[in-house]
């Protein structure tokens, strides 16, 4: 455990030296909230959003976007390049198993995801009267499942891509549809009904809808939870099946 903690703290430090990841994965979602929250029409209740404000319906999509950046872009790129460049191979010659590094990376990214979600909640609550999630337990369940589903997909990319560049390419390619269905461009009620139906079957479409439900005080729909569980299980098993150390 001591070794794992040490590796994780080193990997976290390395993570903090990646300005692009910090910006897109952690800073951008709260920043978008600040930008949209500062536009008067977006910060006022509107019939277009069922009487809610734009930032109320947009916040879940921003959480989903942050998860997607970390899980689909950053994580697989780092893991695939660690394999490609022999970082895992070098570790395999020491008393530490390369699985430790994999775990340390996942833990680092999960911590960053947590920071990002917390930042968004704090900024929203203090600056824009965004209420904290009314159904806290439902919210936590929705965020955790959204996280596991998209991280499992990220690990699957890392398992399949031979190089860091390829992983980065696949991750970026997947990011757009995933973030689109999560409502990054057409949040909440703005998303056409048929599209929302399709989005329910995507990991972060289900995720952001479940997060929104819990935020408003309801429980997430079973369908959304099942979809996220399904992605977690399928992608996770496939990643475990196909991951190679070199």
């Amino acid at each position: 455990m001591n070794r794992l903690a040490r590796i994780t703290s080193v990997e976290l430090r390395l993570f903090l030296r990646e300005p692009m990841t910090i910006f897109f994965g952690i800073a951008l979602p709260p920043l978008l909230l600040v930008i949209f929250g500062s536009i008067p029409s977006f910060a006022a209740p509107s019939p277009d959003f069922g009487g809610e404000r734009f930032i109320d319906v947009y916040a879940p999509a921003l959480i989903a976007t942050s998860l997607a950046m970390l899980a689909l872009s950053s994580l697989p790129t780092i893991l695939a390049s660690y394999r490609e460049k022999g970082v895992l191979r070098r570790l395999a010659t020491t008393p530490v198993r390369p699985g430790f590094l994999l775990t340390a990376q996942v833990v680092s990214h999960l911590l960053m995801a947590l920071v990002s979600v917390a930042l968004l909640l704090v900024v929203g609550a203090t600056a824009f009267d965004l209420p904290l999630p009314a159904n806290a337990l439902g919210f936590a369940i929705a965020v955790v499942l959204a996280t596991t589903s998209v991280f499992a997909i990220g690990l699957l990319i890392a398992a399949l891509a031979r190089t860091g560049r390829l992983a980065s390419g696949i991750g970026s390619l997947l990011f757009f549809p995933v973030a689109f269905l999560a409502g990054l461009w057409t949040p909440g009620p703005v998303m056409p009904e048929f599209l929302r139906g399709i989005a329910s079957f995507s990991p972060l479409g289900a995720g952001s809808q479940a997060i929104k439900d819990a935020w408003s005080g309801a429980w997430p729909q079973p369908l959304h939870l099942l979809v996220m569980l399904g992605f977690t299980a399928l992608a996770g098993l496939a990643a475990a099946r196909w991951f190679r150390w070199e």
Binding site: L14, K85, R89, T94
Partner: peptide, 18 residues
């Protein structure tokens, strides 16, 4: 064995920013 044998292999790098 790993604690008693030191190994230097070809083509094994470290993280870029380490």
């Amino acid at each position: 064995l790993r604690t008693r044998v030191g190994v230097q292999l070809q083509q094994s790098e470290l993280p870029e920013r380490m």
